[in-house]
Design a protein around this nucleic acid. Structure first.
Length: 442
DNA sequence: GTTGAGCGTT
């Protein structure tokens, strides 16, 4: 049984109760579920009146000597501070307004303890967001749990978030996946996972979170033990993950290499991932795939991912943006290394604290907030949302090596583009060379 | 009374 810790994003806000693990620790991921971008907790000690940090080790927050009896306040990296949910909900509503609402699917929860009840299942997953359904499958005769269940969330972002990480229910690691009841390959949902190579042992979970948190909200960090020289980081936004791919970054003085994390056992660079492969499995189901494949450039992936996973397709008509190239052939998005003016991923709002990102954080900024320029956004147009009203221009002035490509014409989201059939299915109706518009997925 | 990869009586 777990205890509930009162956590707030700001000292003046009403706390949210977040369940601890059975060992009494509180998972940072549980906190992040409610407070995206949080990197730790602090509390005001009654005696010293000072703020004290909560010990964090490998994603587990350890209670102070006094226990979890205080109200704990989230720590955020520098300017990343944000109120718990305004950014989230703002961007969400915008996203949903412009698109048919991103629909949640039932999710299967594998690996539940035999003893976990529906109530407990609900209690746990409710901490991520509104839960519409929770059931534990049982043997009709004995009434005993079969060790798995199903849940469904109300908000798609919640689903994304939950899919993006491992879970601990009643002391057991559980996996949440999109069900494949129809036998075949099943549905692998891209969850923004990247492979971090050339890692050194002195780089911790926290180091990775701190460093890469600049680029977007992180939902999971996994460093295999014993140490193997690499790690996986999962971003809430697949775009952020893809944008970082194939880059070198200096973390704690070490140059680590970021590349795509692909499911083990299939080399599917060119297969279009028709039936998205294997599950959303644990970290060990992933291995590195060399970045060299011809279709593996970030833009390709971005195209597919953006369309597929965010369901912007039907409306991705290009043009119209401030710098829009008209028609359906806006230039491909260019990711600015340093937030230059051509950055299509800079949001319209010019400030470093742009509340229009999907994940709340600098989700689409290719660079840390501090270096964001005032470049107009072609990503969403008005309001700088992920497809706000008005412009839908994805393209714009920044092209990729001069090629232009359309982003329109994907087949959609729910049952075709993303979830169940595959998501390399862009039809490529864009103009120009269409270089990034193939249905080959990645 | 056990178990630990998987996929749902409606």
């Amino acid at each position: 049984m777990s205890y509930f810790v009162q956590v707030t994003g700001d000292e003046n806000e009403e706390p949210i109760e977040i369940p601890t693990e059975s060992d009494g620790t509180l998972l940072l991921s549980s906190v992040e579920a409610q407070f995206p971008g949080a990197t730790g907790l602090k509390y005001r000690h009654p005696a010293s009146r000072g703020l004290r940090g909560v010990r964090l080790h490998e994603g587990c927050l350890h209670p102070p000597d006094e226990g979890w009896k205080f109200v704990f306040v989230c720590s955020f990296p520098k300017e990343n501070k944000r109120k718990s949910d305004d950014t989230l909900e703002n961007s969400m509503s915008k996203t949903q307004r412009m698109e048919k609402k991103l629909q949640c699917s039932d999710l299967v929860v594998l690996g539940l303890p035999w003893t976990t009840t529906e109530k407990e299942l609900r209690a746990y997953f409710s901490t991520f967001g509104e839960l519409l359904m929770a059931q534990v499958k049982k043997d009709p005769k004995t009434g005993k749990s079969k060790g798995f269940g199903f849940i469904k969330f109300a908000d798609y972002e919640t689903q994304l978030r939950v899919l993006g990480q491992r879970h601990m229910v009643d002391g057991r690691h559980c996996d949440v996946r999109i069900p494949n009841s129809h036998g075949e390959a099943g549905t692998r949902q891209f969850n923004g996972k990247v492979f971090i190579g050339r890692l050194t042992e002195d780089i911790s979970h926290e180091d990775l979170r701190t460093y890469f948190g600049k680029y977007g909200e992180i939902t999971d960090v996994y460093i295999p033990k014993p140490f193997r020289g690499f790690a996986f980081i999962t971003f809430l936004s697949p775009e952020v993950a893809q944008a970082l791919c194939d880059e070198d970054h200096i973390v704690k003085g070490t140059s680590v290499h970021i590349s795509n994390a692909t499911p083990k056992g299939s080399n599917q660079q060119n297969q279009g991932r028709g039936g998205p492969g294997g599950g959303q499995g644990g970290p060990d189901n992933w291995n590195q795939q060399g970045p060299g494949g011809q279709n593996m450039n970030p833009l390709n992936m971005l195209a597919a991912l953006t369309q597929a996973s965010w369901g912007l397709l039907g409306n991705m008509q290009g043009g119209g943006g401030p710098n829009g190239g008209g028609g359906q052939s806006g230039g491909g998005p260019r990711f600015n290394q340093q937030g230059g003016n051509t950055g299509n991923f800079n949001q319209a709002g010019s400030g470093p604290r742009d509340n229009s990102n999907f994940g709340g954080g600098p989700a689409h900024a290719r660079s840390p907030p501090s270096s964001q320029s005032t470049g107009a956004s072609n990503y969403g147009g008005t309001g700088g949302s992920y497809g706000g009203s008005g412009s839908t221009g994805y393209g714009g002035s920044g092209s990729y090596e001069g090629s232009s490509s359309g982003y329109a014409g994907n087949t959609g989201y729910g049952n075709t583009g993303y979830g169940n059939t595959g998501w390399g299915s862009s039809s490529g109706s864009g103009g120009g060379a269409g270089a990034y518009n193939h249905g080959s997925g990645w």
